[in-house]
Nucleic acid binder design. Structure first.
Lengths: 332, 332
DNA sequence: CTGTTAGCGCGTTCAC
DNA sequence: GTGAACGCGCTAACAG
């Protein structure tokens, strides 16, 4: 256990002044080769690493970006975080991850902590509307990911279009009774429903399997679906759209246990196109995660570096439907 | 966008000196009620949050714990991170997450970054032995999780015992040809193999399906298993132990595609007891994650707070076998 | 080219 | 009880 080194100690060992060490580290050209070599030598030997916390204080920027997600048991968010970390690193930033667990109070605590840690800006998968007003008053920029919100910088998916893609696919395959599994009647549901209406089809509200809001707990999802089955004896539809892959997977398992064949008896399409869908052969709406991350980061970093507060930007990316076995069946 | 506040500005607004604000925030008793109220009032109004980066500099402790994992696509690590975050928060610490992606170079960079960010200590799921010597020379404490390493503070699972449990279960069910899917002949494999030998059974080395080291990529795992099948026409064993749930799941999928029934034709036991195993009904070795986290954090925080360098501690937790459908079949 | 000086926001002596 | 002065490790401005 060697001691923690400071620039002053390095300076002493190299027989130079402390600011000179700073110049060497920051690649300032105005230092003689001779001294650069001497200083680097010492740095190597003692394993000196500059104290970013002091740099932050001095430069008034931490090169830290916060990300607050609502949960991490949904593999979609894991992918998001993973890509974000790599991409941010490439651009010279580190990330601080916080999980709000669908809890607005916790979300606000997380953001306070972001502020305390002097992050330069943050990304947010919001728990709801609750904190948005205060967030917009914060002295640092933020971008909402996954959803697009008016009046906020945000990068999301065109959920209406996603619902439309699914509806069209189901209709094309000859279905005329439709099911939905999700938390509430959000945009992806509306896109789904509207498209059906536009085509003289009908979505029966009783075919909506409502899952309680909160973490993607397999148990809760299972309960919701089984509860639904108890009331209805069987699934009164020939195809179903699940609002995320975790729900789709759980539906598939329950169907299998009951001897319901997928896709022959019921076609299934999920959402997020996570590895769960890939492994299990579940058709799913693909979100362009990488594009989403690069777009989001570019936007955020622009806000950070040019403090000019211009109009808020709300970007929508386009979904695509990845077809796999779970919906490869044509009804006749 | 209000401006970022400092103690000095709060002090001015409350007509007190900056140190007084500091006292109020840190709950110092020697401040008159009157002033406490006045200062708190201002703090509320302007939304002041103390700058932790300055506190870190002054106090020489950041209340930050680093965690470096080798991957995050294995749900086991996600659970680990999630529990760690909550538990650390309870104890007044935040965490910084880094992913080494099974890359020792990256791992070292991550650790350097930890140092730069002034973390107080860190947890490590090591990529291998490569960085261990330098890590032990660092001026801050660290604890290895998931494995127990001699000469290091570490908290791991008794992998030998885990392998033993699986072997015993398979033998009890009447199997006499055994398969294994994993990266190399690690402890869990050795425990498995040894137990077989002790019982006059034989593990045929050709029944070892080797998966390349690296991220738990479903694709790589699939390739490895399919490659094995090509060479052997069929699986030459009636039961198989997979060294993590991701591999177990992939094996199960491939078996299903080939019409091999699980558990009737082949019994399957996985490792980590993640939600993948739960959802898919795969038997699995359970790691007591919560106990592991609390033990690890207690150890690390002790090291942080009492700088007395005593003997290194190496703790092994006991695994349990969770039986599900994938191994519920008795051979006769 | 290099060293001296000042100050980022905060906590911690010290006087008063 | 409260304020003035100092310093944590670093960068930036200015001398020389």
């Amino acid at each position: 256990m060697t001691k923690k080194m400071t620039m002053r100690e390095v300076a002493k060992l190299a027989n130079v002044s402390q600011p000179t060490v700073s110049r060497v580290i920051n690649g300032n050209k105005d230092v003689s080769e001779e001294i650069v070599k001497r200083v680097m030598q010492v740095i190597e030997e003692v394993g000196f690493v500059p104290n970013k916390t002091a740099q932050t204080l001095k430069r008034n920027q931490s090169k830290l970006i916060g990300i607050s997600v609502t949960e991490i048991y949904n593999p979609y968010f894991v992918e998001l975080i993973d890509h974000l970390e790599s991409e941010a690193r490439k651009r010279g930033y580190n990330i601080i991850l916080h999980n709000s667990k669908h809890n607005s109070i916790l979300e606000w605590e997380n953001i306070q902590n972001f502020m305390a840690r002097q992050i330069d800006g943050f990304l947010l998968v919001p728990t709801g509307e609750y904190n948005l007003p205060r967030i917009s008053k914060l002295p640092i920029p933020s971008v909402v990911v996954t959803q697009s919100i008016k009046g906020f910088d945000s990068v999301g998916l065109n959920h209406l279009q996603a619902g439309r893609l699914v509806a069209e696919q189901f209709m094309r395959a000859g279905h005329d009774t439709f099911g939905y599994i999700g938390i509430d009647a959000d945009d992806k549901f509306r896109g789904f429903e509207n498209t059906l209406y536009e085509n003289q089809m009908h979505f029966n509200p009783e075919h909506f399997i409502a899952v309680p809001d909160g973490e993607s707990s397999n148990l809760l999802i299972r309960k919701a679906i089984e509860g639904y089955l108890e009331q209805n004896k069987e699934f009164p539809f020939s195809c179903v759209f699940a609002s995320n892959d975790v729900m789709a997977l759980e539906f598939m398992k329950i169907a299998q246990e009951r001897g319901i064949r997928i896709p022959e008896d019921i076609s299934l399409i999920g959402f997020d196109d996570t590895y769960l869908a890939k492994v299990m052969g579940i058709s799913s709406i693909h979100q362009p995660i990488e594009e989403m991350i690069t777009t989001t980061l570019t936007l955020l970093i622009n806000r950070i570096e040019q403090e000019v507060a211009s109009e808020t930007v709300s970007i929508q990316l386009e979904p695509t439907l990845i077809e796999r076995n779970s919906s490869r069946h044509r009804r006749t």
